[in-house]
Write a protein that binds this DNA or RNA. Structure first.
Length: 250
DNA sequence: GTTGAGCGTT
């Protein structure tokens, strides 16, 4: 949905796309237009929105007609305080169709030659590096969607989870036998919190474990450099978190 | 009603 393109996005082949980051979730294209239009001819402004909620994702795309104007806008508007937030303006790296963009301009029309000689065996010389990079990237992505999910989704999930517990085949007898403490929210609360304390180490350990279980000797532990994580493992005793079992020492 | 690394069509 472009501000100018009612019938779709205008041709960006002759335009320079700028990526505006760090804008407020309330900032709209109309708010950015006067700011960017002052430094050049703005062809179009597009702000990706969440298809579920419809809210802005916190960044926008501004298309300029000329590169010099776009560059000027980047230099001028980058770091500009908008709506109480400092925005970040930079040239877009990828296009709407995943085209390669250099300086906001598309240098590659369509990388469809990807299917060419596509070996299913990706030559990964540096598996460790690749793994690390992938982990890091995934971590960032996850962190991003976690922000608002924690507010609504997670909350709903928690409620749903609770209801579901009741719907389970748990009989009142078991409930009494096992004791309420086991299902008590106070008890489950720290438990969940502990589970959420997933560290990158956990991902690495699980990753390699499930990635190539037979790759290494199952009966022998990897003698290579021991992971310094096991000792740092925060999960050792849930009692530690228990308020009643708190160490009275001091 | 809130949050904050990133790359896009209604």
């Amino acid at each position: 949905m472009s501000r100018f393109g009612r019938s779709g996005p205008p041709p960006i082949r002759d335009t320079y796309s700028l990526l505006v980051l760090n804008i407020t979730f309330r900032t709209t294209a109309d708010d950015l237009f006067p700011l960017f239009d002052k430094y050049g001819e703005v062809v179009d402004i597009y702000i990706p929105r969440d298809r579920r909620t419809g809210d802005s994702r916190g960044f926008a795309f501004v298309r300029y007609k000329y590169e010099d104007e776009a560059q000027k806008a980047v230099d001028r508007l980058d770091g500009k305080l908008v709506d109480g937030r400092e925005i970040m303006v930079q040239f877009a790296k990828y296009g709407p169709n995943a085209e390669r963009i250099n300086k906001g301009r598309i240098v590659e029309p369509v990388p469809r030659s990807r299917g060419r000689s596509r070996s299913r065996s990706p030559r990964r010389r540096y598996r460790d590096d690749y793994r690390d990079d992938y982990r890091d990237r995934d971590y960032r992505r996850r962190s991003r969607s976690r922000s608002r999910d924690r507010y609504t989704r997670d909350r709903y999930r928690e409620r749903d989870y609770r209801r579901r517990s009741r719907s389970r085949s748990y009989s009142p007898d078991d409930y009494k036998k096992h004791g309420r403490d086991s299902l008590s929210p106070a008890r489950r609360s720290p438990s969940r919190s502990r589970s959420r304390s997933y560290s990158p180490d956990d991902y690495k350990r699980r990753g390699r474990d499930s990635a190539s279980p037979a790759s290494r000797s199952p009966s022998r532990s990897p003698p290579r450099k021991a992971s310094p994580s096991p000792e740092k493992s925060p999960v050792r005793r849930n009692d530690d978190r228990s308020p009643r079992s708190r160490s009275p020492s001091t």
